[in-house]
Amino acid sequence: MKRLNYPFSPEAVRELKVGDMVLISGKLFTGRDAVHKYLHDGNKSPVNLKNQIIYHCGPVTMKDKKTGKWTVTAAGPTTSIREEPYQWEVIRDHGIVGVIGKGGMGQKTLDACKEYGCVYLHAIGGAAQVLAEKIKSVDGLYLEEFGLPEAIWELTIEDFPVVVTMDAHGNSLHKEVENSSKEVLKAIL
C-alpha cells in the first residue's frame, strides 16, 4: 500500500506505477461532464487546479438546514471515458496531477499523463458508501449553476482508496488487461 499526501506534485505522481494500491489524503475537486466541457471551451476555472486531483464523481450531497453545512452521503466514481475528448487539455492547461474515476481512459489522456506528469487513479465502482466515509469535510462549492452533481466540490479526504491504472510513464492497466484477455479469447473462440 502506498500513500499520496497533500500537497501533490508531478514529481510525486511520477513515482506511482500501474498496479499500485494507493491511499490518498488531502484534497480533491469533483468534476464531471459539465465542468470538463466548460474548461475545454476555454473558460477560466473558479479554483486554481494546479497540482490538484480531479474526481469524476457526481456526489449525493445534503445541506444541514440549521448550520448550512454540506455533507456527502454517497460518492462513487462515474465512468471516465466520457471526458476523454477534454481531459488531456485540462491536464495541460490547468496542471492537474491526478484524475480519479472508473473504467479507465484512452490514448490522449495517457499521452498527456506522460507529458505533463499526471496519473489516472481507479476508484472502486459502486462503493459509494465506503468512499463517502473517506470524505472528511466539504470545503467549497463552485459552478453550482451546473446542478449539484455536476458542480465542482472541494473535499477534504483521508485514506481515499484507489488503484493506479494509468501512470505517468505511458503504461495502462486497461490496455494490458484488454490485450491479455484478447489472447485468451482468441484461444477460446
Binding site: 481507479h122 472502486i124 465502482g125 492497466l173 488487461v177 484477455s181 485468451v184 479469447l185 477460446i188
Partner: peptide, 11 residues
C-alpha cells in the same frame, strides 16, 4: 473467468 479481466477490470 479464464479471461482474467477480474474485478473492476484490474485483472
Amino acid at each position: 473467468n479464464k479471461l482474467g479481466i477480474g474485478p473492476m477490470g484490474f485483472g
